[in-house]
């Protein structure tokens, strides 16, 4: 027998405080329009070689036009309807859950669990994403890239492993140091020595 018990859900409340509530997705519209502009700049500054017709600017032009159209449409749809995240469901946007529900004669809620809590006009306002944890992960990766050529694979990879563990809420930092070093050494042995990938050895390489 088995069971999955979910801990009581901490209610996530959303408060409409102004224009930007539920409209942060406009950031994406902006990015899409910026990308379209970057493509246009790229097309205009392209140093075209050869005289094939249609040339190398043809396909990018189609994509740029499409990007502008999509960016504008997306912005309009976000401005018309505020969007709030639906809690931490396992819903994948790759396949429409409405369509799956219809195909299987089931309710939408049955397909992907219940939708997140409806936004309410009261309660504590909290950002949906946990920027502190994101910062730890991204910062860890940045430090990893900077330190890799200096410290070498074993130490830097262990450091990255440890930082991610910490970010994900590990409660045994000292034990994690061991796990991290074990993991990075195993990857060095398996992929470096075993499969012959070249991994930087760093200053340790000079000593050994």
């Amino acid at each position: 027998m088995s069971a999955t018990d979910t801990a009581p859900v901490e209610r996530e409340t959303v408060k409409i405080t102004g224009f930007w509530s539920g409209r942060s997705e406009l950031v994406v519209s902006g990015l899409v329009l910026a990308l379209a502009t970057a493509v246009v700049v790229g097309i205009l500054t392209m140093d075209v070689k050869g005289d094939t017709v249609p040339g190398p600017q043809f396909f990018p032009t189609i994509v740029a036009v499409a990007l502008y159209a999509i960016g504008v449409l997306h912005a309009i749809s976000v401005i018309r309807t505020r969007r709030f995240p639906h809690g931490g469901g396992s819903q994948s946007p790759d396949v429409s859950s409405d369509m799956l529900a219809e195909l299987s004669h089931a309710e939408r809620a049955e397909v992907y669990g219940r939708r997140g809590d409806r936004p309410r006009a009261a309660g504590r306002v909290r950002l949906y994403s946990d920027w502190k944890t994101i910062g730890l992960v991204v910062g860890g990766v940045v430090l990893f890239i900077l330190a890799l050529p200096v410290l070498g694979w074993v130490i830097t990879a262990a450091g990255l492993f440890w930082v991610i563990c910490k970010a994900f809420g590990s409660k045994r930092p000292v034990f994690d140091v061991g796990v991290s070093l074990l993991f990075s050494s195993i990857t060095q042995l398996a992929f470096g020595a075993g499969l012959g990938l070249s991994l930087p050895s760093g200053f340790l390489g000079g000593m050994l």
Partner: peptide
């Protein structure tokens, strides 16, 4: 990572 401290953890009982 953006949700790990926000979403409830499922308590898993191996079967």
């Amino acid at each position: 990572a953006s949700r790990v401290h926000r979403d409830p953890n499922a308590v898993r009982i191996p079967a």
